[in-house]
Write a protein that binds this DNA or RNA. Structure first.
Length: 462
DNA sequence: TTAGGGTTAG
């Protein structure tokens, strides 16, 4: 090979290493600057250079920006390859865009690129994640028809898809059948199944799989510990959960941001705010980097402590650091403001949410309904209720309690009947409040009718 | 490409 070509190849390789390291550090601006400087110095970017940028834009910025790299790549005459498309499909999965993922998959076929195992796995994952299990399974069948050998990632994606749909029992059945065919489960498989079983309350079965994991020679990791710990918290076994956390630390597994986040939010919910703060100190002392979910947990803790000013300072720090608040962030703040009685400020945050067009504002609306009821502004709560596009049992429960507190039992009764017609269940305490309220204010017949309707609704659930 | 964490009622 001529020396000039060798030097050029070497420069491209160096350019790619440099860009990859900047992308890994999420410094995309610098990565772009390096690309421009590199070209000026005679380095010729290749498909790897652009794929690295596309992957990073998909992960850290957004699909539009990733597409703009694709166009630039085509402009300079570099053809996208299977990896380009796989990265874009992964991006579409990240942003829950199943149609986009399918379009990209079709586009690959149209331009004569043969999707590989990764393309199929990613597309399958996307369809499961966005609620299209049947289509995901069709993709799996297509993969088999095309003679592409599924890997453990393929099977894990299928198992995970079933678990996420709440069908952990089927996931275990699939897992057993695969084992009979020689599939050797790894830690990812075990962790997936344990989580699926824990989330649907099949603790004993989860324990058996955990035991099996121990016997398989596979060592559990921090994900296994966090999964089991969370399971204990979810089912009210707090002491056991905290013991698992300490066991993990004592055994030398370094707790990561997920584990700390799980413990801090549980302590906060239980009102153990001193312990929660001690845990935060420990986490920060261990140099754990904060991500969005963790910032949200810390905001939640600050709101519970009534430290709203510090909470907003933390929000600024988060957004200045490049992490935009999401529906969790703003719902936590709306709730914190409502709990302190700052209703106007809470409305302001809700408006911000509407501008930002989050996927759902339901929790924030519910917090405001509850907040308005608690400060006695039930009419405003009703107004807001009528504006809401979707409602859930939380919405009705808060409003029912608010109406009962004001002695408006007949309005509450009507609302409860509407709620039943929509197939929603509200807390027993709210049902009792309406019935006893009707009775004590002389509407005994209405109370009786309501009780019958509640019984019928209960029966129809079986 | 596949596994764990974050918000609302009483």
């Amino acid at each position: 090979m001529p020396l000039s070509r060798q030097i050029c190849g070497l420069s491209t390789q160096l350019l790619n290493v440099c860009i990859a390291s900047l992308c890994k550090a999420r410094n995309l601006e610098k990565a772009e600057a390096v690309l421009i400087d590199g070209i000026r110095l005679g380095c010729i970017p290749d498909v790897v250079t652009y794929n690295t940028l596309i992957t990073a834009y998909c992960r850290f910025v957004g699909m539009d920006e990733a597409y703009s790299i694709l166009y630039r790549m085509r402009e300079v005459g570099i053809k996208p390859d299977v990896i380009t498309y796989n990265s874009l499909i992964a991006g579409a999965t990240r942003y829950c865009l199943p149609s986009r993922a399918l379009e990209l998959f079709d586009e690959m076929l149209q331009i004569g690129l043969a999707p590989d195992e990764w393309s199929y796995n990613t597309l399958m994952h996307c369809l499961f994640k966005t609620g299209y299990p049947e289509e995901a399974y069709k993709i799996y069948l297509d993969m088999i028809l095309k003679n592409i050998t599924p890997s453990s990632a393929t099977y894990n994606t299928l198992i995970n898809g079933l678990c996420k749909m709440g069908k952990a029992v089927y996931a275990v059945r699939l897992f057993r059948n695969l084992q009979k065919l020689g599939f050797s489960a790894g830690l990812v498989t075990y962790n997936t199944i344990i989580d699926g079983l824990c989330k649907c309350g099949r603790i004993d079965q989860a324990r058996r799989i955990l035991k099996e994991l121990g016997e398989s020679g596979c060592a559990p990791n921090v994900i296994t510990y966090t999964t089991v710990m969370k399971c204990c918290f979810r089912w009210g076994k707090f002491e056991q959960g905290f013991e698992i956390f300490y066991e993990m630390m004592n055994k030398g597994y370094n707790s990561d941001v997920f584990a700390y986040c799980t413990v801090i939010s549980t302590l906060t919910k239980k009102g153990m705010l001193t312990d929660a703060n001690a845990c935060v100190e420990q986490m920060l002392g261990n140099g754990i980097g904060l991500d969005k979910a963790c910032y949200n947990t810390l905001l939640y803790l600050l709101c519970r402590e009534g430290k709203l000013e510090i909470a907003f300072q933390l929000l600024n720090e988060m957004e200045e650091g490049g992490l935009e608040g999401d529906e969790y962030t703003y719902s936590i703040l709306v709730n914190g403001l409502c709990k302190m009685g700052y209703i106007d400020a809470a409305f302001k945050q809700l408006r911000l949410m509407e501008v930002r067009d989050f996927k759902s504002n339901l929790v924030a609306y519910n917090c405001l309904i509850d907040g308005l009821c608690k400060v006695g502004e039930v009419d405003s709560a009703m107004k807001l209720f009528n504006k809401m596009k979707s409602k859930d049992p939380f919405t009705y429960t808060s409003l029912l309690h608010g109406l009962c507190r004001k002695g408006r039992f007949r309005v509450a009764s009507k609302l409860l009947l509407t709620c039943l017609r929509e197939g929603m269940n509200v807390l027993r305490s709210a049902q009792r409040a309406v019935i006893t309220g009707l009775q004590s204010s002389g509407f005994k017949r209405d109370a009786g009718k309501l009780r019958t309707a509640l019984r019928l609704a209960q029966l129809s659930q079986y």
